[in-house]
Amino acid sequence: MRPTLLTACLLAAAPLAAQNAPCGGDFAAFKAALAAEAPAHGISADTARSFLSGVRQDPNVLKADRSQGVFQMPFVDFSRRLISQSRIDKGRANARKYDAIFTEIESRYGVSRGVLLAFWAFETDYGAVQGDFNTVNALVTLAHDCRRPGLFRPQIFAAMKLYETGDIDPARTTGAWAGEIGMVQMLPEDILENGVDGDGDGHVSLKTSAADALMSGGKMLQSLGWRAGEPWLQEVTLPDTLDWSQTGLETEKPAADWAALGVQPREGTLPDLPASLLLPQGRKGPAFLAYPNYRVYFEWNQSFVYVTTAAYFATRLMGAPVFNAGNPDPALSDGQMKALQQKLATRGFDVGEIDGILGAKTRSAVRAEQARLGLPADGWPTAELLNAL
């Protein structure tokens, strides 16, 4: 069973504490250290030992963690791969089926049904594909691994608390390879903080209850800063004379200022909100204004292409048309992108890991070098830029 899209990239911005968290060494000794630490988190040593007794290291989790090439795809290809007519039809059917739940979420948390439907679709195909990795094995394996222990070690103690309430079974609870559980894929800490018993049965059952999963997802988005009643992404058309260096998430202007520069909505009107102009594949491809709620997506997920696709799909589910794909310049190959990142890093830019993925840091560096070289500074790397460097 494939890993969900959320698990494939939520790890891109792990906390700095990850560098100092205990990890590695003998796995049995590592488990014993977890049990010894549990009382400091309000968990009895007996509970911790019971929770950890059957835990095994899972090499398939580590393999999945190191296989995340899907996010190297450009936005147009990625979105076409994820957004099918079947997913749109199922989303609209679920919007009708759970209308009362979505209405309550919109009233209580201010989160549009389109937003939650898009997450639900992409993470688990509306609950059909939730992952078959043992959750506790996955969390302990990733905490023992020394890549991001600071992210996963706290999740183990949160899972122990869910074990105490009967909401996690170490032997039977399954989910994604990075330890998320349920229809909208939430980590144990997020379940503790934002889990909602939407169906009133006394438990937060994100795997089996759509009401619990959707209500919990709505509460989580609100806690991350979602602003009620505001849009998140809007397709726009652009003049050929635009200053492309102003595009990207680093620049934010009132929507009225973008309008004064010739940026126009493809449908409807521009709201009275600050916005950034996004060009996922440069000035020749699709164009969107991203509003404050768009940035909340990055609190859920760290991949630019995933976030933009999820945000766009949410607008589709709310009635927006298919985006105008335009005719963007060809994307660089994996090898070319890594070579470009290496050249940018050599020039002093922080592009993060040399991974072939066009993330926010690489886009910013590309834009700066395009401007320096007198190229259109739209953040889309081309063979021309690579050759110029």
Rank of each mutant, 00 (worst) to 15 (best):
P330H: 00
E252N: 08
G348P: 03
Q281K: 06
V236P: 00
D145S: 12
D65H: 13
S245I: 06
A228G: 11
G229F: 14
L224N: 09
F30G: 01
I354T: 08
M318K: 12
A311Q: 05
P154G: 06
G285P: 03
V140E: 04
L5Y: 15
L139A: 03
F304H: 09
K97C: 04
T382C: 08
Q19W: 14
E193C: 09
L34R: 11
T135R: 00
P271A: 04
S53Y: 00
L187Y: 09
L116Q: 04
R227V: 08
V305A: 01
F122K: 11
W300I: 05
R363Q: 12
S216W: 00
F102N: 07
A35T: 13
W226I: 07
R49N: 12
G326H: 02
A310K: 09
G200Y: 07
V111T: 01
A259D: 10
A228C: 11
A290Q: 07
L375H: 12
A314S: 15
S44I: 10
V55S: 07
Q264L: 15
G179M: 10
T165Q: 11
S86P: 10
S205H: 11
V136K: 02
A290R: 05
K338R: 15
V70S: 05
A360N: 13
G262I: 04
A325V: 06
D350G: 07
Y98R: 15
V70W: 02
P292G: 08
A38D: 02
V322N: 11
F75P: 10
I357N: 03
S107Q: 14
P74E: 01
S84D: 09
G24Q: 04
F157I: 05
G182A: 07
A368E: 10
P149M: 12
Y291V: 06
L187W: 12
L344D: 03
G69I: 11
G150R: 02
T103Y: 05
E104V: 09
D378H: 03
V351H: 10
A38G: 04
G24D: 10
P74H: 03
G200K: 13
N94P: 10
K219E: 05
A228R: 08
A8F: 06
Q72T: 15
D378K: 08
Y109N: 01
G175D: 01
G91P: 04
A360E: 13
P22T: 14
E299N: 11
L389K: 13
G268W: 09
G42D: 06
